[in-house]
Design a protein around this nucleic acid. Structure first.
Lengths: 174, 174
DNA sequence: CGCCGAGTTGAACTGAATCAAGAAACGTGG
DNA sequence: CCACGTTTCTTGATTCAGTTCAACTCGGCG
């Protein structure tokens, strides 16, 4: 554990602070110890589309940019005052050398993220607004509580208005 | 290389053959040496939604089912006569023990899949039918050629009719 | 030759987006 | 601790991209 910590840079961020801006190269992978971050993309019309929420215990970064050094296509910023651990590309390589078990850990991490991404895709392909919302709050109730509704809408791929109406419908039903 | 092969079971499949059926546990991860497979989900209305195409050099499976032993939520079948290598969960573990470098390989594999999944999500969140189609054929021209159009539509999350019309529009423009 | 799956086209329909306006909740500085 | 501005959420009216349904064409294959 002690050895592990030497590869990481601890850091604190305020609400609304950028951790990564679109166009800059993504120098770090971020582990969230406390608080919540999000990654998102801004389209030509200025609409935000949330790719990921990262509460405590999650990792977040623009992996493609991190690995290739190309400019990031996402923004990452802070939703709730956060304490994080940063690791750079070289530090990561060192760490994997020094602690081979980490290779396995990272693989499993990637695997799990991959699975949840695949589910999300299957879900957006097969289901309508309402069902998608229900699915999300069923799987991530904790996130649903902590995040403003319009961000949830953005994550789910619908407008805030639509989500508002969906929830209204659901209230009637119950 | 020789050692590697001992962990895998080679197998040939015909067109339209199932490699995995929804509801069965996914016992193998499949590496495609030749041909093409696909994974997809069937919704309540009987519509297929393609999750992944796997041409030569790609891996395919229902990772969640494979890892947890739960019934698969996808079907996997063969689009073009295929030669594949199968690996079971225990063989995989053995292999990772015997050849630690594979741990790294698998991590990178997962990482790359994850990146492409993330892109796909960003893409479905931000873009319309036409742009999504263009993006796909730009990134995977080889797949676009080999796959029937209605499957492409299914992958892109639109009806065959819509894709047909999109392509018609594009012809006019050029 | 006849059938069948794949693709195209048209017309009607619909779920969700957009535009616009107002209400409620929030937090920040005086 | 209140007041003001900002952010969040809601609601209604209108519009639109894409779906659905149905009919028709084309090319291959038994």
């Amino acid at each position: 554990m002690e050895q592990l910590k030497t590869f990481f840079i601890p850091k604190k961020y305020r609400r609304k602070q950028y951790v990564l801006q679109q166009g800059d190269p993504c120098k770090y992978i971020v582990f969230v110890e406390k608080g919540m971050l999000r990654s998102y993309q801004v389209d030509d019309k200025g609409n935000e589309h949330i790719v990921q929420f990262a509460p405590e215990g999650w990792w977040i970064s623009d992996s493609y940019s991190f690995l290739t050094g190309t400019p990031a296509s996402y923004d990452i910023d802070v939703l709730e005052e956060a304490e994080v651990l940063l690791i750079t590309q070289p530090a990561m390589e060192e760490m994997l050398q020094a602690i081979p078990a980490m290779e396995r850990y990272m693989r499993i991490l990637m695997q799990n993220s991959l699975i949840s991404m695949q589910r999300r895709i299957a879900c957006t392909l097969t289901t309508q607004a309402e069902e998608r919302y229900l699915g999300f709050i069923a799987e991530h109730p904790h996130i649903g509580q902590r995040v403003p509704q319009h961000m949830l809408a953005s994550f789910l791929g619908m407008t805030p208005e639509t989500l508002s109406r969906v929830r209204k419908q659901l209230l009637k039903k119950s």
